[in-house]
Simulated scan of single mutants.
Amino acid sequence: MARQSAVTLKELAQALELSPSTVSRVLNDPSGIDSRWASPETNQKIYDLATELGYVKNQYAASLRTAKSLLIGVVVPRLQDYVLATMYEGIDEAALEHGYAAVVANSLDQPATHDLRVRKFLDRRIDGLILGDTPFDGATLKSLDKEKVPFVLVNRRSPGHLSVTCNDQMGGRLVGEHFAEFGSKKIFLLAGDHRMSTSIDRTTGFIEALAEQGIHLPVSHIAYGGFDTSSGEKATRDLLDAHGIPEAIFAVNDFAAIGALGVLRERGLKVPEDVKVVGYNDTPLASGVGLTSVHSPMHEIGRRGFDLLLKNIQGEECESVQLDTNLVIRSTSR
């Protein structure tokens, strides 16, 4: 007769003539090689019988014993954004490897929505948070600090808080040095959202690199807005109408850069002959249209974000992580 219910830990222990605590410790060892609880031969017998009988760990019961839910909450501005979606894939992948589940929610970069999403996660007893929607001033983090909730920032940073980002200031510098090599003087900067570290750091590095080469970027040639295609289109139209044709355009996001390319095309301007264009993040779409872009290790940022959060949850000493970038040169700036 077919078995009607899943085998229990106690039944496994009885069949092997071992204590339930020994079987539990062996099966809960994530490496599968710890010999502190039993010999390698006994370990193998436990794994073999558990597989044969179809033993499945009861995560709910485990969470009650350990006071952990094995859930983490992830808040991003928009999951439809390729950059954040790729980072979430890295988070989810790393979480699964450690027995956790990652649940994601959108904040639309609205503080009130962010607070609501975070509160919903906390009500569900999540073990920690990964936040990809934090402004540079960290205003949305005050309640988490007060409640001592473990959390890590990804993609964006805020001083005094754990984060995993790429070196955005260096990324901006790489673009400034690239334009300086061509002797470009009249340059437009599509700077994104001025509240976010991604905008602040990329812009700062870019302007500093130009200044070191004796190139001045007027404030009037900098347009702030969003990180999407429509924002890039609007910023490019406004700058062209106000200041004429530049020699080069740097957008701090690939999608804004693609918006700029569309406007240049509709104005009859050739890229790179008339105007050179560079974006940021090196998304697959950038490769598809030949856009020069600063490479951001998006998937790795997500994985490292979970790793850092897990250390935080476990009470280990933690430091922020900053990953390297490089400039991928393609046809829009050759």
Rank of each mutant, 00 (worst) to 15 (best):
S5W: 12
S184N: 14
W37Y: 13
K68D: 07
A257Q: 12
G183P: 05
T113P: 01
F227M: 01
K186G: 05
D228T: 07
M196W: 12
I91Q: 00
E93T: 15
L84A: 03
Y280D: 09
D81E: 15
I187L: 01
N253E: 15
F151K: 00
I329W: 13
N167Y: 07
T165H: 08
A235Q: 09
H243M: 05
H295K: 05
A85V: 05
E97T: 15
N167I: 02
R65G: 03
H98T: 14
S163E: 11
S331M: 11
A6G: 12
E181S: 04
I200H: 11
T283P: 09
I91Y: 01
D123W: 11
Q4L: 14
G279P: 08
F188W: 11
S19F: 09
L64P: 06
V164A: 01
Y100S: 08
G73Q: 01
L141A: 04
I72K: 04
A15E: 15
L264D: 08
C166D: 15
R157P: 07
V7E: 13
V76W: 01
V321C: 06
I130V: 10
G160W: 10
G171A: 12
G90K: 01
G132R: 01
I245T: 15
T292Q: 04
H299D: 12
Q110T: 12
G315R: 00
Y47E: 11
D228E: 13
E41A: 13
K276D: 13
S331C: 06
S19T: 15
R157G: 09
I46C: 00
F255L: 14
T113D: 04
L327R: 01
G262V: 05
F121M: 07
I329A: 12
A50G: 06
R237P: 01
V252W: 08
P111I: 01
R117V: 07
Y100D: 02
D109F: 10
E41S: 09
A191T: 03
P246E: 13
Y55S: 02
G99E: 09
F255Y: 13
A251E: 10
D168H: 04
D238K: 02
P218E: 14
S331P: 11
I258N: 09
T165C: 03
I249S: 03
A139L: 03
N167T: 00
A50S: 07
R195Y: 06
L53Y: 11
L129Y: 06
V154Q: 14
D145F: 15
A105L: 05
Q44F: 08
R3L: 10
A256P: 03
D238Y: 11
M298T: 02
D109L: 09
F227C: 04
D92I: 14
D201V: 00
G315Q: 01
D168N: 09
R157Q: 13
S63A: 09
I72T: 09
A139N: 05
L49Y: 04
N58I: 04
D324A: 13
L190F: 07
I329C: 14
D123S: 06
L239V: 00
V321F: 05
M298E: 14
Q213E: 11
G288W: 12
T204P: 12
A50I: 01
R303V: 03
F136G: 05
K185C: 08
K186F: 08
D127V: 10
G279C: 09
R78Q: 13
L174K: 02
G128L: 04
D168T: 00
S197V: 02
